[in-house]
Design a protein around this nucleic acid. Structure first.
Lengths: 229, 229
DNA sequence: AGCGCACCTTGACTTATATCAATAATCAAA
DNA sequence: TTTGATTATTGATATAAGTCAAGGTGCGCT
């Protein structure tokens, strides 16, 4: 019980709520544990609640008929997911799967909706959460439609650099294959672009460690630029 | 005043609100009129409120450095837009422009946030609205990343057919150039695909009137299928 | 009615990225 | 440490869609 409260207290969604309110919420959560690769829910499935990552890593994704996958989000501790059907429709719009062994909290829809009606600050937090997602999606659509893969990769590297304080290098939290899927491409293409960017002296790749050798060049590439041969 | 209430009453966002609550809202709206092609707001601009289309048509879009445009939404009477910065950040994530002469209602942020805190059903409606948007975006990302242009077009035609009751034909509310931008392509490509689909006997194109000759073939194409030569 | 401008279409060409295939590196576990 | 499996790289080739360019069609406006 104490452990759950700790997770809830670092969840931005619950920021500003009192001890008592957090206890109320932790009273309605249900623990779930998923192995690496295990499906949490699938697109089209009926939802009767949503989730919060307590520990581990989860991907939200779509797949095409031919088996290609597009990752929409990758979430870690403190991130809620699968809330859309709580507020509209009742089916999940995408799939969720654990990328590593994960501990997930499940919040049943009805209890949560009751909670939200009574606590305006909780509903404001949820509105903030959903609008952040919309913001991220506009960026993702812009990237997919208006930029080519090298620019998308450069954007992602810059994003990682902001996220991770260590200015020396950044570390990929996911495999390169998954990164390809997140960027809307395939591993082969990503691999080639890593090679080209290395040849240009923009980055140095050492497994999951990426050294950003030329941050300005990357900014440039992210904005518009073309990657020379 | 009476005219505004009528618009608000058909706006799904305000469904279930009392006469009095609608009056309260109409008390804080500000009328704006925009000519065809006029900008309503631009990406990155500070927002101090959001909008509702009273009459006309508005597009929400992103543009690349090189001038290519990706339409995110096209909104008509009753649709709210530009709400994201009300709940997160403070800047618009995309551009808005009137496609035709339009009458727009502006709702100042502060008054609206006050209103939402007092009326739980209004906040639930807004949560529903934002989650519908998230749903639409997942579809759009799926389309851009996982389907080719002919499939996207077929999906859009099927969507139009559901929207418009007349099963005989559908009518484009926008120009073909704008449709291209909505589908994440360019007019030339769209034109060629219209030609191919016509040659296959899937559709017949007469200006803005589109006859869906082979609905099953279109469903097929939308799902996965390839368009033959 | 006819002028002018925006929209649309068609053709030849280029290019980014996917596909297919083979090999290489990495990693976890026995 | 060896082994098998996952993950990553590299090469050759195919293809969808973008670019550039030139006409054509239609529509609103005086």
């Amino acid at each position: 019980m104490k452990k759950i409260s700790r997770i809830l207290s670092i969840t931005p969604l619950f920021k500003g709520l009192s001890e008592q309110e957090l206890d109320e919420i932790s009273g309605i959560t249900i623990d779930r544990y998923h192995k690496r690769g295990e499906s949490i829910f699938m697109e089209g499935e009926e939802a009767n609640g949503f989730y919060i990552v307590a520990d581990g890593q989860v991907k939200i994704f779509k797949t095409s008929m031919e088996g290609k996958e597009q990752i929409l989000h990758i979430y870690g501790p403190g991130n809620p997911f699968g809330e859309v059907p709580v507020f509209s429709g009742s089916r999940f719009p995408a799939n969720a799967q654990a990328l590593v062994k994960s501990h997930i909290l499940f919040l049943p829809r009805n209890s949560f909706v009751r909670l939200i009606a009574d606590h305006p600050s909780l509903s404001m937090n949820m509105l903030g959460e959903l609008s952040m997602r919309l913001r991220q999606f506009t960026v993702q659509i812009e990237n997919l439609s208006l930029k080519e893969v090298p620019s998308r990769l450069a954007s992602y590297l810059i994003y990682l650099a902001r996220e991770q304080v260590n200015s020396e290098h950044v570390t990929l939290a996911i495999s390169k294959g998954q990164l390809a899927s997140l960027l809307g491409t395939i591993p082969e293409t990503l691999s080639r672009i890593f090679a080209k960017m290395s040849a240009q002296g923009l980055i140095r790749v050492e497994g999951k460690k990426l050294y950003l050798l030329d941050p300005l060049g990357l900014e440039d590439l992210a904005a518009a630029g073309k990657l020379a041969e």
